[in-house]
Design a protein around this nucleic acid. Sequence first.
RNA 1: GGAGAGGUUCCCGAGUGGUCAAAGGGGGCAGACUGUAAAUCUGUUGGCGGACGCCUUCGGAGGUUCAAAUCCUCCCCUCUCCA
Length: 402
Amino acid sequence: MTKIKEALEILKRGCVEVISIEELENKLKLAEKESRKLVVKLGADPSAPDIHLGHVVVLRKLRQFQDLGHEVQFLIGDFTGLIGDPTGKSKTRPVLTKEEIGKNAQTYRDQIGSVLDMKRTKIVFNSDWLSKMNFQDVLMLAGKYTVARMLERDDFENRYKTHQPISISEFLYPLMQGYDSVAMKADVELGGTDQKFNLLVGRSLQREYGQVPQVILTMPLLVGLDGVEKMSKSLGNYVGISEAPKDMFGKLMSIPDNIMWNYWELLTDHDMNEIKKMKNEVEEGKLHPMTVKKDLAVEIISQFHTHEEAKGARDEFEKVFSKKENPTDMEEYAVSESELSPLDISVVLGFAPSKSEAKRLIKQGGFKVDGKPVTDPFSSVTITDGMVIKYGKRKFGKIIKK
RNA sequence: GGAGAGGUUCCCGAGUGGUCAAAGGGGGCAGACUGUAAAUCUGUUGGCGGACGCCUUCGGAGGUUCAAAUCCUCCCCUCUCCA
């Protein structure tokens, strides 16, 4: 197999779609011949610098391009961020200040560095070119696409059919994103399958502006912790890559058993045959799903923390949730009173968002003093030094008597 | 511009004068169970007061009434059809 073929094999893996393979092959050949790097584009939202495992699926693919010698241009959509991608429900968003954008960009830099090779990564902002366009430029751009073609987009079509509002500015969004590719002279653009339409607009526009259209690669959307919706920050069903190992571990253990195969496939380098083998063994009852899930969690966490930390998270999880023991490290709280009610303790330790909620939780048996439930919110608890309070499933606190 | 429909609690969605803090579902939380923060089942789900109670909430602002999510006025927003 030639080098190019090998590269193609690597790049194809895991993709839902590549448009088109032939074009990608040509680009790779040309790049080699002219000994230049392909510009590989990935766009990101400026307001949510909180990279989660869903993004990692795509970032890993970018990394493969880098390992093959190409350059990643990580686009921060500080200008498009004013509208918000219609894929979501959000409409216009508050304008971010330059400082905020700069800060978010730095956060991105810090976070994507755990997956990407930052020496081969360039960060760009689309306000650099979009904010300079005047109304005439916008008209020219808008003239290159039709309403009917816009409505082909799944999301628009659905909303249109179900009588949901679509603002004109939302129609502009794909055009802006497409124009980014023109401005960046992108050779390749990656995205989740939900981005396919936008990516294709990029191709059309590049053609209109006399460029060779970018090749697009779409990646599967990672299912979130609920096992149903795609992983996203706004749905709260995500694992952030800068989270603490123990939080990552807990969250990963909360995914439904049946979607963990998906995680194995998209988030680890594990051999596909081995993954299938594990799946069969679980189905045959030879392997406990929990064990497999724990291994998965360790393997994922090790990519963002040390292997030791990942294993530590596992031990801690087993200790707290399987053996129902107290965590090794607990937040300590100094208390001077000698008697307090469970309700007061919940409030004093800051565990309860509201007193009504605390009362409910206590009555339901979710409040424990040294492992023993106290269900009367108003009973009197004698405060002793080193006393351990458990509030709900995950909140622990150790009391230090003053 | 004209005609019609609609805006309800985290989300979807019922409710058209008091019995409404508001059905039902989703989600969340808690408990039980399980060698999982899986699955399943049960409970719970505005806030403040230990209970009887009070306060804030049904697009916004006023008004009618002993009493309004429900009636009236004006305004804002969305959708449909016509132009």
